[in-house]
């Protein structure tokens, strides 16, 4: 029985500066162990929405409940143990003198013992492949690796809900793979993952549920298969589904419409619908 982790009730947010309406009447329930993608154009309100999940922003109307706590009454520091947030720009997050210190900051704040802190640090270093960078200054390493460090720094806190804001933007193939592995690992560990991204291929492969934002409204909340096959919806938000999905939708060889999410699925589908002509 999945339990409710985050509930938004008629959530609205107006930024005081310039009275910009960034969210309007969003209703949403996120349960444990869900892997969720949040998509939408630039400025549609994705970051604003997820910043409500750990109390960085407070609703200007409506409510957000995180594991039973109304975020309006909680400090970000108190919610930090439940919800981890990896910022879009790692430079905003890192400040320690070495990668090791950086990884210890979060768990130390949670009040863990020295041994536990070190154990978590070691696990994170191993998982993210940061062995050679242990004593490097976080600002001296390349941007993609810095981003990994910022994820590792949140991972060491083992939050029940993990928020990633554009984890693969500007990443090369190797670090993108690490992000895939991280999400898979979090899935196995039973965490809830909320991933804001413009990388549709990543989302098609890893998420179970997609939330589509447009003009500060939540306009769709469904599986990636449903969202990507809804050409009208895709068009209205100016989002291009993964090419393999578009090909699948238009491929005349399949009897009925097939919504494909990965190359592997495509290969299987082609093989079964249209067995290679034997000579």
């Amino acid at each position: 029985m999945p339990e409710e982790k985050i509930v938004c009730q008629n959530l609205g947010h107006v930024y005081p500066r310039g009275k910009i309406v960034a969210l309007e009447n969003v209703n949403l329930t996120i349960c444990s162990q869900e892997i969720i993608g949040v998509i939408g154009q630039n400025g549609s309100g994705k970051t604003t929405l997820v910043k409500h999940f750990n109390g960085l922003l407070k609703p200007t109307s409506g409510k957000v409940i995180v594991e039973g706590n109304d975020t309006a009454k909680k400090k970000v520091q108190e919610l930090a143990a439940h919800v981890g947030y990896v910022f879009q720009n790692p430079n905003h997050q890192l400040f320690a003198k070495t990668v090791e210190h950086e990884l210890e900051f979060g768990p130390t704040n949670l009040g863990l013992s020295r041994e536990e802190v070190e154990e978590r640090r070691e696990k994170a270093i191993e998982f993210f492949g940061l062995q050679d960078l242990r004593l490097s200054h976080p600002y001296r390493i390349s941007f993609p690796l810095r981003k990994l460090v910022s994820m590792a720094a949140v991972y060491t806190m083992r939050p029940a809900v993990f928020i990633l804001d554009e984890p693969t933007t500007g990443q090369d193939n190797i670090t993108t793979r690490t992000v895939y592995r991280l999400i898979e690992r979090l899935r196995e560990e039973g965490s809830t993952v909320i991933c804001v991204a413009h990388d549709m291929i990543l989302l098609a492969e890893v998420v179970d549920r997609m939330i589509v934002m447009r003009n500060s409204h939540l306009i769709a909340d469904a599986s990636p298969r449903e969202v990507f096959s809804d050409t009208e919806l895709m068009h209205s938000t100016h989002i291009t589904p993964p090419q393999i999905t578009s090909i699948g939708l238009r491929w005349p060889g399949f009897g009925e419409k097939k919504v494909l999410l990965s190359v592997d699925e495509a290969v299987t589908a082609i093989n079964s619908s249209n067995p290679p002509a034997n000579s």
């Binding site: 947030y85 905003h92 997050q93 400040f95 704040n109």
Partner: peptide, 16 residues
């Protein structure tokens, strides 16, 4: 503005 963002990043890591 930058300072506000950085501070919020620290808080979301449970700054004590």
């Amino acid at each position: 503005n930058e300072f506000a963002i950085v501070l919020s990043a620290q808080k979301s890591r449970g700054m004590k």
